[in-house]
Design a protein around this nucleic acid. Structure first.
Lengths: 191, 191, 191, 191
DNA sequence: CATGAATGAGGCTTCATTCAT
DNA sequence: GATGAATGAAGCCTCATTCAT
């Protein structure tokens, strides 16, 4: 039919993520993206009208995928540990979400719509975590005397903890240990 | 009142913080700053050659002040709770630090120097927290079987947990409760 | 129905006119035209290399048709009124001619040739009007003490007069009345 | 106080008009304007944020001035002739107004406001002409049996009539003659 | 022919920054 | 010091146009 494509969505997404993680969001322009992809800048405009549309499309894709994975952790013998492990693997999502405030949401209607969708997915994610914390067998072991939002927030905040020279699994173990038993030694242990 | 035609550092810092917290770092230009201060844009250049110098100067000032406060928490009957409380109060520091990756560190030598200093202060902060966690009376109650960096990271991560419709003190209580005892009910409690 | 994937000249002309009258000449691009026609932009290039060629071709077609109609008015019992009526009907020609100055005549040789042809047709039109004004029975009633070009210009200028809430025929009557007898009441009438 | 200005409003207006009359509105960019003024393109942005704002400001200025002049013609012994003469002198206004449909009114709020203002001035102009045609001594000589809007439209349309190798005053005479007495010789004259 | 893909040219804008007063 | 003026660099964006299939 026509000329072969040199860029496809996947390439775009990959280059977008690389560019942002390596250079920061402030370096994310179609100019830089085009250089990385080896195409003319205007070529990218045939795919996306605004950089904000590209980046939010990508973030939705990323977020959607990780929301799906949460379901898997629900069947883990230790679901909360599963979540932590999921976090460690999708750490870059967190970094990507961090740039949200820098995205010009007024750039276009599509961007606004995308941001709305991301917010939705984010809610969904929290809800799924909430379900794990309040229903099912695991929930019987989890304290219910602290507001759900704080419990969810706590789990999500752990993504911020630096890995600092240990393996992924070591990090998961350590974080899970504190999250489960607390920072303090147990009074019962001292008996 | 008529606009002040002279600026002082405090005004600069105040305007800088306000601008960034209200509009985001991407809106932080000398242009916007000048408008907010009611002076000509070029006037700011009499004080700062680069916006990066201004912002890092300000962040150092902010960071230095909060590092000082950590010492106070050490004398708290519950030092870790004190840290949490400090966090909730200095939440905007966290927001400010978040923009670090967006600062062009190559802007000038002074900027580089400032960033170095900030890193130092950050280390200092962690160290002070480390001291609280490993020495003194409180330390005897804190688990030492998890790497210090993870413990510190955990405490610092709590700043991310949303407050969501509770008072500051309620939030502090909830967060401290989980941090201290863990997310799970204690086996001993079920006995 | 599915979009036609083949274009013919008539469609091109229709879409061209619609696009220009609805959106203005500044919105006349092959991009917009292609969208309206439901074909790929590059397809249009199989017919026209330049948008200027298309538009001038179309204008020639339009102009030629209206020049033909002038002959009909010559046999009207009131030829000048016939011209006015012709005007009211072909008002969009006037709009189309208005965009002439915005056409880049240097776009191609064909464009230059087309513009030349349009000028010719325009001359022809004026000439035909001139003939009506200077020969034949009607001419005996028309004042010859004013330069022909001004007389012709006067008639052609009437196309600019707004219709403003009357019927076409009312407008024709009013305009013709003034054109024939003048704006002033006649001294003879007051006698 | 500060550096001497190299461009002022008048220069801007002059260059704007020249550029448009010589090259057409399609060539009216800040780039071209800057070249003509011998300044950097960005310099113009210190005066006007959008080319549409500049051009509409200029057109308002132009229109306002010519509206004022209408009052003068009212005291002319032959007010309608005065209007015609005014037209011939301000012919370029007409050309400028012709470009109105090409101005992107959505460019900014200021543009929208300006366009509103122009419309207002235009109405005012018509009204003033209407007053001349319907009140005062002159009005007694003017036919009132044709709608006012057509009479006004007629006068305004005369600006379109080409001058074609005569002096301004000759043109004014010819146009006024036809406008006053009509295109046809009077029946009384043939008696 | 029709088309999807790629591109270059050109215009738009925003700021940081310098400079003369 | 404070300021208004001017500017360059850099990013944004839209099309016309070419080309291979």
């Amino acid at each position: 039919m026509s000329r072969k494509k040199t860029i496809d969505r996947v390439d775009l997404y990959t280059a977008t993520e690389e560019l942002i993680l390596e250079e920061g969001y402030s370096s994310f322009h179609f100019k830089a993206l085009a250089e990385r992809l080896g195409v003319a800048r205007s070529t990218i405009y045939n795919y996306y009208d605004k950089k904000e549309e590209l980046i939010t499309d990508y973030m939705i894709h990323l977020l959607a995928r990780s929301v799906e994975r949460i379901d898997d952790t629900a069947h883990d013998p230790e679901p909360v540990k599963g979540l932590i492990r999921l976090w460690s693997r999708y750490a870059h999502i967190h970094q990507m979400l961090q740039i949200m405030p820098y995205i010009d949401q007024e750039a276009s209607d599509k961007v606004k719509e995308n941001v709305r969708r991301m917010f939705q997915l984010f809610m969904e994610m929290k809800e799924k975590i909430g379900v794990i914390l309040t229903t099912g067998e695991e929930a019987t072991k989890i304290r219910q005397d602290v507001s759900l939002s704080t419990r969810i927030g706590f789990i999500m905040a752990t993504v911020q903890i630096p890995i600092q020279g240990m393996t992924e699994e070591e990090w998961v173990d350590e974080v899970y240990t504190i999250l489960r038993d607390g920072l303090y030694t147990k009074p019962t242990d001292t008996r």
